[in-house]
Amino acid sequence: MKAALAELQIELTPYQINTLSQAAYTGWVWTTDNFHKMTILPETKQILFNTIIYVTFTLLLFNVGFALVLAIATFYLPKGQAGIFRALWLLPRISPSVLYVVLWKWLTWDTGFLNAILNPLGVAQRNWMLDTTLNAWVFVVLINGFIGASMGMILFSSAITAIPKPLLYASEVDGANRWQQIRFIILPQLKWPILFVTVYQCLSLLTSFEQILLSTDGGPGSTTEVWALAAYHNALDNYWGNLQYGYGAALALVLVVIGVIMSFIFLRFFRFQELVRQPRIEQ
């Protein structure tokens, strides 16, 4: 509609546009056009690919990987230090997302912290976050990962402390060094929490987009535009003003369906029931 107005070279105030939109609203119809559109638009492939990159890297590197590293490292630290360390990693989770992302922006801005340090060393000034696609991805994953790592860390930490002490003692007198103790005793005991965090975080990453929206907003270009963000953009925040509620809703619906299907696959594949039921040996 707006495009049509532009063609006619009519300029209107937002209020007038609004009124016009209401008048022009044609009511709803049953249609699969939006899904059809989805399959032919090249950008669909792009956001699908982006989503896979986003979820995989954030999940493996941070929500599970880094969380494990944190939990295991703090387990071997003295109690007090471990507590402080864990509390520190909770900060990203409990701070308001807008504030949190703004901090990252300060860090990476043209006149931000990174540049303030690197400039004197002869590194050219740039916006580190949006400079290249790779940079954008690194920061998207970092920003989300720092938030997501805390949940895994807490779950893994408590699971590690729940391992009966004699088991760890036994492995030490049996000759296992730190690494072998982690590899043969601790990690196998964390199987269930690791699966749980993987599944849970995978599903929640699929639908999360607010940090990306606040940081790169899908940029540069649409290289970090993920599925959920695309749904939002199409439905509620189109730069050109032609809000496509229907198409956005269709995108969101696909996401829900993917989530449900994945949940079923996970439930099947990991046989949660069995894991939960498995009797734990008395220690």
Binding site: P166, L167, Y169, V173, P188, Q189, E282
Partner: peptide, 18 residues
């Protein structure tokens, strides 16, 4: 402990359940 080569039977046996 790792280098002492001592065999211990713990009260709870401490068998590795997995």
């Amino acid at each position: 402990a790792q280098q002492r080569n001592v065999g211990v039977v713990f009260q709870s046996y401490a068998l590795y359940p997995h």
